[in-house]
Nucleic acid binder design. Structure first.
Lengths: 228, 228
DNA sequence: CATGTTATTTATCAAGCGATAATTAATAGG
DNA sequence: CCTATTAATTATCGCTTGATAAATAACATG
């Protein structure tokens, strides 16, 4: 494609602050890392020139590594949604040698340690507002790999049978998940003063939830009609 | 200011599809309404030309009603954060002639009916990501007008004293608030399939919370150290 | 040390942005 | 009906954006 006609040797005026060459692999990773940082700050409408400046390179160089800005954004998604996901989360949750409370608290400790960063939370919110697909898929993964296992394990620990969780039951655990997630949004996005530290919040939220979820699970299992 | 020099009468070529004139007040409201709609869809980087097109007017006309795009955005904030807030929410919550469960459920029914719209939720998230102030102030209002009253009323209904709520106690109720809010994010922003209807979600979340919050409130009141 | 490859730069384009100035025409008041 | 007012338009400016083409220089290989 790139036609290289007319090698006219008489058109050189500006000398340059030339950078040393880097290995393409390292550059690629470096570009994605800084793109995550920039997009988390500004949003995906952040300019490619700003990114290049932060990297100390020129803007067209980005297009040697990513055919378009959308491809760069796709690489950022991959980094956030895929690379930071841990298979151990599910494994820890279904390990019924430990008490349910311990498992759930340990999971949320580790999960929040992973996602409660400006990069993760802000890019997650930006992505959700930009297009629907990626976050819907992420939510489906959370439901399948985290919430259904938690639901089953909790139901089991209350002696309530082993059938697949109903949507109502899973929804209950979404409320817990959302409540904890929103703590991160307030802390990191709104920068709201947070007088209660994260671990205490998790313990109190989980303890409240586990202390109260038994009767509601039983009610759902028995299909009891609830008064408004 | 506007200098009107050289009234040269010989420079008219294009005829126009001229619109009828509207009252400035109505126009102002119409512009804000459509701006809310557009910004909710696209975000605040949506173009003024796009907005003008949707309104069926030309782009410079916007600048007769709003000195700058930021002023238009400020009007949108006012519409979402101020105009849609209801004083009755607080009043209903502190009305201790009704049972606490009923008050809390009634509040969340009405609150979610107000904010679970694409306009409200998406603009709220866009605003939070754009700048920190407005959502931090909104969160402060929610804490003061909603969560502290709920906390006090709940503590009272458990016979636990009338002192001002501690941060740990308020944080507990933030978890409930966040859990319910996140239902709206999943439904409206991520367009996740929601098999459980809103009222059932609210009832189950509130019942779980109220069934479990007693022991945790007592523990917090007695400053008991909690195992990890 | 010469040569080919390619990482990186310079230069530039077309489109879109927010905003302003000048012009035109709809309406109200005498 | 004429006139002053002003809502609304046309035209345009300066700047930024994503992207491409061409030139240049660092490095690997013989």
């Amino acid at each position: 494609m790139t036609p290289r006609s007319s090698l006219s040797p008489a058109a050189a005026k500006p000398v340059a602050a030339r950078r040393t060459r880097n290995k393409p692999e390292e550059r690629h990773r470096e570009f994605v890392r800084k793109a995550v940082e920039l997009f988390a700050e500004i949003g995906f409408e952040a300019g490619t020139r700003e990114l290049a400046q932060r990297l100390g390179v020129t803007q067209p160089l980005l297009y040697r590594y990513f055919p378009s800005k959308d491809d760069l954004i796709a690489a950022v998604y991959q980094e956030i949604y895929v690379n930071r996901w841990k298979k151990e989360w599910r494994e820890g949750l279904i390990d019924d040698t430990r008490p349910i409370r311990e498992r759930i608290i340990a999971f949320y400790e580790d999960y929040t340690a992973t996602i409660f960063t400006p990069e993760w939370i802000r890019i997650y919110l930006f992505a959700g507002l930009r297009g629907v697909d990626i976050n819907r898929r992420y939510a489906a993964t959370v439901e399948e790999e985290i919430l259904r296992p938690i639901t089953l394990a909790t139901r089991h620990s209350f002696g309530l049978g082993e059938e697949p969780p109903t949507p109502e039951e899973v929804e209950l655990f979404w409320t817990l998940q959302g409540g904890i997630f929103y703590y991160g949004v307030r802390e990191i996005v709104y920068q709201f003063p947070m007088p209660v530290d994260r671990s205490a919040m998790i313990r109190n939220a989980v303890d409240t939830f586990l202390a109260g979820v038994g009767p509601v699970l039983k009610r759902l299992a028995e299909r009891v009609e609830v008064p408004a």
